[in-house]
Structures are given as structure tokens and as C-alpha cells.
């Protein structure tokens, strides 16, 4: 599985949405499924899948799929 596929799967599972919905432009609160509760699940899911620790500032900053990639790239995950 590539890191892109892992990211898509993590988003799909955490937000309970179809993988096809997970595109770079998908943003926090842009769909009902991505609310504050599922955001917490998403963060823990990403940490587990990529074995990283996401700082509070980045938890707040993770406002879209594109932003998630940017933050994970900072943590040495290559997309």
C-alpha cells in the first residue's frame, strides 16, 4: 500500500466515508461526517497508521486532506 492509499484509507475509516470522497480539497466541516468528533478519531488514526505524533498546533491546522499531507510530509512521510 502506498502512503497515498494509506492516507485515503485512514480518512475513509475515520470519517466513515467512501474512499472516492477523499480528495485533496476535502475540508474539515465541508461534509457532515468530518466534525470535531471524527477529527479526533482521524488524528489518532493517522498517528497509528503512519507511526507519528501530531502536535496540537498541527491537529488544529489539519483543515483538509491536502493540509494533512503537508503536515505528514513535515513528519517525514513521503507522498
Amino acid at each position: 500500500m502506498t502512503n497515498n492509499e494509506k492516507l485515503t484509507a485512514a480518512f475513509a475509516e475515520a470519517l466513515s466515508i467512501e474512499p472516492s470522497v477523499v480528495v485533496d480539497s476535502l475540508a474539515y466541516h465541508s461534509i457532515p461526517e468530518w466534525d470535531s468528533v471524527s477529527h479526533m478519531i482521524l488524528i489518532s488514526q493517522l498517528e497509528e497508521v503512519f507511526d507519528v505524533s501530531i502536535d496540537t498546533d498541527d491537529v488544529i491546522d489539519m483543515s483538509s486532506v491536502a493540509k494533512a499531507k503537508e503536515i505528514l510530509t513535515k513528519l517525514h512521510i513521503v507522498f
Binding site: M40, I43, E48
Partner: peptide, 12 residues
């Protein structure tokens, strides 16, 4: 709590 709560979230 903020530092540790992700453990609990992960375990639901």
C-alpha cells in the same frame, strides 16, 4: 489530558 487523550480516542 491533552497529551494523553489520543490513547483513549484510539481505543474508543
Amino acid at each position: 489530558t491533552q497529551a494523553l487523550m489520543k490513547d483513549l480516542i484510539r481505543k474508543r
